[in-house]
Amino acid sequence: MRILIADDSVLLREGLTLILGDGGHEVIAGVDNGDDLVHRALARKPDLVISDIRMPPSHTDEGLRAAMTIREQWPSAPILLLSQYVVLSYATELLASGSGAIGYLLKERVSDIDEFLDAVERVAHGGMVLDPEVVAQVMGRGRAADPLAALTPREREVLELMAEGHTNAGIAKRLVVTEGAVEKHTQRIFAKLDLGTDAEVHRRVTAVLTLLG
Rank of each mutant, 00 (worst) to 15 (best):
A144W: 10
N33V: 03
I189L: 03
Q137M: 13
E183Y: 06
A96W: 01
D114Q: 14
I189K: 06
D52K: 13
I171W: 01
R122L: 05
A145G: 00
L175N: 04
K184A: 11
E164M: 15
G34N: 05
T178E: 07
L81I: 04
L64A: 10
E183N: 15
G30C: 13
T17H: 05
L106I: 02
G24N: 10
P153C: 08
W74H: 12
E164Y: 07
A199G: 14
M139D: 05
E157C: 04
G98P: 01
Q84V: 15
E179Q: 15
G126M: 03
S99W: 06
M55C: 03
I102T: 13
I70D: 06
A163F: 02
R141F: 10
H202W: 00
V27T: 10
I3N: 07
I102Q: 13
Y85A: 09
A6W: 06
S51R: 11
L94R: 12
V110W: 06
L148D: 07
G21T: 11
L159S: 12
H166C: 03
I28A: 11
L82D: 02
L42M: 10
S76M: 05
E93L: 13
I102C: 04
L48V: 03
V110A: 09
V176R: 14
A6G: 12
G196M: 03
A96D: 06
V177K: 13
M55G: 00
S99L: 10
G165L: 08
V129M: 09
P78C: 02
V120G: 05
G23K: 13
V205C: 03
A163L: 04
G24A: 06
T197A: 15
S111F: 05
V31H: 06
A172M: 00
G24F: 07
R188Q: 12
G140K: 01
V134E: 03
D22E: 15
D118V: 05
V182L: 04
I113W: 12
E179G: 12
R71V: 08
I50T: 15
A207E: 06
K45G: 01
E115N: 12
A199R: 14
T60R: 15
A181D: 01
P75K: 07
L20P: 01
R203M: 11
T178V: 04
A101T: 04
I171D: 07
R203N: 04
R143Y: 03
R109I: 07
A96H: 09
L195Q: 08
H39A: 14
D22L: 14
D8A: 08
P75T: 10
H25S: 07
A67E: 10
N33I: 03
R71M: 09
D146V: 15
M162I: 13
M128P: 01
L148K: 12
P132H: 06
L195E: 02
R203C: 08
N168H: 08
A101S: 14
G170F: 07
E115R: 13
T186E: 11
T92D: 02
E164T: 15
I113E: 13
R54F: 00
G98A: 15
N33C: 13
E121Y: 15
